[in-house]
Design a binder for these strands. Structure first.
Lengths: 167, 167
DNA sequence: CGTGAAATTGATCTCCTTCAAAAAAGGTGG
DNA sequence: CCACCTTTTTTGAAGGAGATCAATTTCACG
């Protein structure tokens, strides 16, 4: 939990609202604005609005589902499928909030997949060679063949529990 | 979600209470009794007892924390550290509920860590050779050097969020 | 005992890491 | 617009951790 001078505990995500000790860290990939809301306030608010509490719970459930999928991705798939899978996940998630334009270095991709940057590079070349993606400029990936990319990553968006997709 | 004849939807874990589609499966490792409680009943109960709802939420948060740690374990640690880590986690969790006597095949260990059974075997031998554990009989692991096992697995029990440990 | 599951061993192969270096791509100040 | 510098991408080569395949041995138990 983040402590700020003269305020009650607040945390950067729902993951630590009810946990005393924070067991992870957060970082932003782009410049970001961050707001702090004291735990007390959130709790009181949720008590007053159980429907919203449900939604919050749902959110943490989905986070857990995503982590579960990551365990599979990192533990059971080779570099090719693993990278295809994150590309699929990132795309679907960005699209759900209407931000089709992501940006990521190969080092970040490696961090997300547990693959060395060198091998990320070679795997991207392979994906490119197969026509699944293209990388027109640095830090940008264009999905050229969505169906085959999903296939390569054994990607099934179910675990994201996104019900209404932006068109 | 599991559907049973003549009943409303129920699910085998909290992970799917609020999610429409179940994205994972469950299995018991030993013979078990399973009770089904319809979602409606659980939801009404939680609405009536917000303190318990908090505890349930907390539980799902901890599950998520555990999955997060698994991503690290599977993605960033080699077989030696990975197996040491699960042994630590399993031990701490069992102890928290007073069940110090676990039981697991090497194949199950491999499944939990994403390591082939052959390599699980070799890694256990290594852990044994270093005096961290012993395997007196099949399916049983005795921790001989808790401190060094934790070290080997880079195990920090924080992420389990167990506050009171059984003595 | 016999029988199937679990543990063990040996050998080979490959995916991926690591190390090292070069080429490209962006920015920045002049 | 160019020279410069940093970050990112790309390439090559070598080594290693772990998978896979195939047997053998040990164990649990009816």
């Amino acid at each position: 939990m983040e402590e700020r001078a003269g305020s009650t505990p607040s945390s950067p995500d729902l993951q630590s609202l009810d946990l005393e000790v924070m067991d992870h860290s957060l970082a932003t990939v782009v410049a970001s604005k961050v707001a702090f809301i004291p735990h007390e306030v959130v709790r009181a608010f949720l008590r007053a609005h159980p429907r919203i509490a449900d939604v919050f719970w749902r959110d943490t459930l989905i986070d857990a589902a995503v982590f579960r999928e990551w365990v599979v991705n990192v533990g059971r798939r080779d570099a090719y499928a693993r990278i295809a899978h994150v590309l699929c996940e990132v795309y679907v998630r960005l699209r759900a909030v209407g931000l089709v334009n992501g940006q990521a270095t190969q080092a970040e991709l490696g961090d997300a997949t547990g693959i060395s940057t060198v091998h990320v590079n070679r795997t991207l070349q392979e994906l490119r060679g197969h026509g699944l993606i293209s990388t027109p400029k640095s830090g940008r990936v264009v999905i050229e063949d969505w169906d085959r990319l999903q296939e390569a990553g054994e990607f099934d968006p179910t675990y994201l529990h996104i019900t209404k997709l932006a068109a």
